[in-house]
Design a binder for these strands. Structure first.
Lengths: 214, 214
DNA sequence: TCATCCCTGTACCATATGGTACGTGTACCA
DNA sequence: TGGTACACGTACCATATGGTACAGGGATGA
C-alpha cells in the first residue's frame, strides 16, 4: 500500500504500543494483538522475528519514553526546585498517564521475577534518574551524600505514591502525602547531624527477619 | 499416605507457596508446579478445583502473611516510633525476604492490569496499612490530617525503596535514603503551615500531561 | 468381608499458542 | 518486459496448556 520500506513495521510497532499500554503485556498473544491492530500474527513474526523480538522493541520504546520524561523534568530550569517537583508530580498523577504507569509497574514486577526480556529494564531504572536529580539537589545547596540520598528518596516517594494512586485512585490522598513530603523538604533542607544519627542507628540495627512483603 | 483429610491439600498449598515465592506467579503452569512439588497436575486440579482456585488461595495466603507482618509492626510498643520504623525497615530490607517481596510486586503489577483473581489484592493494599500507622503517628503527637498524610508517605517510601532495592540490590543506597527520610522526620515533626502551603500549591497546579511513566 | 471415602496416577481431549511453508500481490529498477 | 525486494495472507504444524474420564489404592468403619 505505502511502499516505503519499514513504514508498515513502524505502524505495527506504534499500534502495538497502544495495545500494550491498554491491555498490559502479561497475557498478550500474537493473535489477539494482530486482530487488535488489524493484521495477522504472521506479519508480527515477519516484522519482528518472534514474540520476544516484539516485546524487546516494546520495552525499549517504553524506556525511551521514560528517558524523554526525565528530560522534560530537567527542562524549564527557571522555576524553583519545589515548584518543578510539584509540576512533575502533577503531570505524573494525571489519569491520562495511568495506563502507561500500570504497564511500567507490570513490567517492573515481571523483571524482578527474572523474565528474560524485561530484565534489561532494571538496569537503569533507578540510576538513570539518580544522576540528574542528584545534580538538582546539589544545585540547591545540599552536600553530595545528602543530595544523592535525597534524590533516591524522591524517586522512591514518587513511585510509591504512584503505586498507591493506581491501586486506590485516591488522588486527594496521594496529593496530600506528596504535599507532606514537600513540606518536610522545605522545613528541613539541611540536616547532616540528624542524618548521620539515623544512619548509625540503621547500621547498628540487629536484623530480625520475619514473615513477608510490605 | 497420611489418611488425614485435607492434610495432603495443605501440604500441596505450602509447597505451592514456596514454588511461587521462588519462581513467581506469571508463567506458572500446573504441570511445572506439579513436577516441582512432586505430584501430578491432576492432583492440583483435584484439590483446588482449577488453576484459578489455586491462585486465589495463594494470593489469600500472601495477604494473610501481609497482615501478620503488619501485626508484628504494631507489636513491641515499648520502643520509640523512629526506632520501631528502623527495625521494620531493617526486617524488610533483609535479603531473606526479597523473594516474597518480588512476588508481592509482581502480583501488584498484574493486579493493576486487571488480572481477574489478583484484583482483590488491591482492596486493602494501602488502606489496611494506613489505619494502624496513622494511629502511630497520632500517638506521636501529630494532628489527624498530618498523621494520615505522613502514614501514607511512609508506606510509599517503604515500597518505593523496596522497589529500588530489589532492582539494584544496593542495600547501602536504600538504607541511606531511608535514613534521610528518618532524619527529615526527626527534624520536622510539626509543620502545619508549610504543609498547607505545599498543598495549596499542588491544588492550584495547572496540569500538563506528557509522555509516560515515572 | 464388604462398602465407603479420600487420595493419586495414567491417559486422554479440545484448545490456543508461537512459528513455518508456500503462494500472491505490488512497487520499483533495469 | 522481466526481475527483485518487500509486504501480506492462508493453511498448517508441533507443542503445551487446563481440564476430564477412568481406574484403582489404601485406610476406616460396619
Amino acid at each position: 500500500m505505502t511502499g516505503d520500506k519499514g513504514q508498515a513495521r513502524q505502524r505495527l510497532l506504534d499500534a502495538t504500543m497502544k495495545y500494550v499500554v491498554a491491555h498490559g503485556v502479561g497475557d498478550m498473544s500474537l493473535r489477539q494483538l494482530a486482530a487488535a491492530v488489524g493484521t495477522s500474527h504472521r506479519m508480527l513474526v515477519y516484522h519482528f522475528g518472534s514474540k520476544q523480538g516484539l516485546l524487546i522493541e516494546v520495552i525499549q520504546a517504553v524506556e525511551e519514553q521514560q528517558r524523554q520524561a526525565l528530560a522534560s523534568l530537567l527542562a524549564d530550569p527557571g522555576a524553583a526546585l519545589p515548584d518543578r517537583m510539584l509540576r512533575f508530580w502533577a503531570e505524573l498523577a494525571d489519569p491520562s498517564l495511568w495506563p502507561a504507569e500500570r504497564l511500567f509497574f507490570e513490567m517492573y514486577g515481571q523483571a524482578l521475577q527474572g523474565r528474560p526480556h524485561t530484565a534489561a529494564l532494571l538496569d537503569g531504572v533507578v540510576e538513570s534518574w539518580l544522576g540528574p536529580i542528584t545534580e538538582l539537589c546539589e544545585s540547591a545547596g545540599m552536600p553530595a551524600r545528602t543530595a544523592r540520598a535525597r534524590a533516591r528518596l524522591g524517586v522512591a516517594v514518587t513511585r510509591g505514591l504512584l503505586l498507591d494512586l493506581l491501586a486506590t485512585g485516591d488522588r486527594q490522598g496521594a496529593d496530600d502525602a506528596m504535599a507532606e513530603f514537600m513540606a518536610m523538604q522545605l522545613q528541613a533542607p539541611e540536616l547532616q547531624a540528624a542524618e548521620l544519627q539515623a544512619a548509625e542507628l540503621l547500621a547498628a540495627e540487629p536484623l530480625v527477619p520475619e514473615s513477608t512483603a510490605p
